[in-house]
Simulated assay, not measured.
Amino acid sequence: DYTTAMAVTDTAIHEIDVLPWLVNDEWDEVQCIMPKTNSKVKNALKDPQIMIMKTKGGIINMLEVNVNCGFGYDINCEVVCENGVVNLPCPSFPTVRYANEVSTKIEDNWILRFIDSYDVEIQDWVDHARKGETGGSSAWDGYVASITADALVKSQTSGVPEKVVTGGTPDFYKK
């Protein structure tokens, strides 16, 4: 039941949401490029997809979504900076040497990688709610992620960069 648009709205949406926060910038334009479809795809799904997202300050983010990669649930992140590179560590699994091979497990399920993060996020929400406060992401953050996702889905068919137009952050969301 996974569709081409879901590569953006269900899979890439997490990066679409968090990256502007990480780089302290806003999205300007986004583009989705459709390479040759994976031979494992059995329906009209376009997979993999390459998403290029540019911020107003000129930072380029490149994201690959490849749900039919065939080797497991694998997430990699590399941040290329002026003076160095930062890589997101992979989950720790033992390296196994057996039958003339060396191997390391790759997850096959997103839940095992992110369940602790969801618990921390929900606990933070509960802690703020008990105090009558808000914390973490706002409705504006969700709105911007949705508008950005809409632009990427539009680019899936147009093939060209699409502007991300939010209308400007309302004052009560500015900190």
Rank of each mutant, 00 (worst) to 15 (best):
K56D: 01
K56W: 05
K56F: 07
G57Y: 10
G57C: 04
G57T: 11
G58H: 12
G58L: 12
G58V: 12
I59P: 00
I60N: 02
I60E: 15
I60W: 06
I60Q: 13
N61S: 13
N61G: 05
N61T: 13
N61M: 08
N61I: 06
N61E: 05
M62R: 11
M62K: 10
M62Y: 13
L63E: 06
L63H: 14
E64Y: 09
E64L: 12
V65N: 08
N66H: 14
N66L: 08
V67T: 13
N68K: 14
C69Y: 09
C69F: 02
G70V: 05
F71W: 01
F71H: 13
G72I: 08
G72Q: 05
G72T: 07
D74C: 03
D74L: 15
D74S: 06
I75V: 15
N76T: 15
N76D: 08
C77R: 15
V80F: 08
C81T: 03
C81G: 04
C81R: 10
E82H: 09
N83F: 14
G84P: 01
G84N: 01
G84E: 00
V85K: 13
V85W: 07
V86I: 14
V86L: 12
V86H: 06
N87G: 04
L88H: 11
P89K: 15
P89N: 15
P89M: 09
C90V: 10
P91M: 03
S92R: 10
S92Y: 07
S92K: 15
F93M: 03
P94K: 02
T95H: 00
T95K: 09
T95A: 07
T95G: 07
V96G: 08
V96A: 04
V96K: 01
R97L: 11
R97E: 12
Y98C: 06
A99Y: 12
A99Q: 14
N100H: 13
E101W: 01
E101C: 08
V102W: 00
V102E: 13
V102H: 05
V102N: 09
S103E: 05
S103Q: 07
S103K: 15
S103T: 14
T104H: 00
K105Q: 06
K105M: 06
K105P: 02
K105S: 03
I106K: 07
I106P: 03
I106W: 01
E107Y: 10
E107T: 01
D108A: 13
D108F: 05
D108N: 13
D108M: 13
N109W: 13
N109F: 12
W110I: 09
I111F: 07
I111P: 02
I111R: 13
L112N: 12
R113V: 02
F114P: 00
I115N: 11
I115G: 00
I115C: 02
D116A: 09
D116N: 12
S117C: 04
S117N: 03
Y118G: 00
E121D: 10
I122F: 05
I122V: 08
I122R: 06
I122S: 01
I122Y: 04
I122L: 08
D124K: 10
D124F: 00
W125E: 08
V126S: 02
V126N: 04
D127L: 03
H128A: 15
H128L: 05
